[in-house]
Design a protein around this nucleic acid. Structure first.
Lengths: 96, 96
DNA sequence: ATAAAGTAGTTTATAATATAAACCAAAAAA
DNA sequence: TTTTTTGGTTTATATTATAAACTACTTTAT
């Protein structure tokens, strides 16, 4: 009856990150931090996990003299997100 | 932008349990076990957590000679589920 | 009557996950 | 020049999830 929910996306913060990334070309670390209200430490960890899974790609550079981390969704990440939403419907739809 | 997802419901198994319970008067332990494909141990633990939170009520009796555990959603649990679904929409809706 | 297998769970030990706090290196401000 | 701020990372701990072992019986087979 219930398919498994991708554990990588079934995390409040990682889901929020991906949720943002599917709507924008790319997003900076601090942008994600503000939107998600996450602590920097947590955000750093969860971004890395999404990157390890190749759900997002992370590009580190400099903005002026400060480090700058940009994230963008990958094709794999987009598919995973869409699949996650599909499965989730089984859980939250009325009359499952 | 993103409201917090009730951590009690943001668990695959607990969400599945509640998801079933919102659609039926009551459900037996083994019924939930089959529907969710959970192990008995895990199901036992998660049922207890939902009960502690008063999201469900659990009634233990006997069916013939065997122990029988019946679960049903409470008003509080129903509200929590509905709220959870509302918040979740922020994460999974296109264009959030 | 006894042993072996089954029912319906619970408890416990461990692994995975999430989070905050402490830390780092460089830059800017006082 | 010390203090604070920026933009993060690392580490230690708390929380959560899970499987395996266990309990307390019942049924079936011998």
């Amino acid at each position: 009856m219930f398919q498994n929910l991708d554990p990588l996306l079934h995390s409040q913060l990682r889901l929020a990150i991906v949720s943002i990334l599917v709507t924008v070309e790319e997003a900076e670390f601090l942008f994600l931090k503000e939107k998600t209200n996450a602590t920097a430490g947590n955000l750093s960890v969860q971004i890395e996990k999404l990157q390890e899974a190749k759900y997002i790609k992370v590009e580190k550079s400099f903005k002026g003299k400060y480090p700058l981390t940009k994230c963008a969704i990958t094709k794999k990440g987009l598919k995973a997100f869409e699949a996650y939403v599909q499965v989730l419907q089984q859980y939250i739809k009325p009359n499952n």
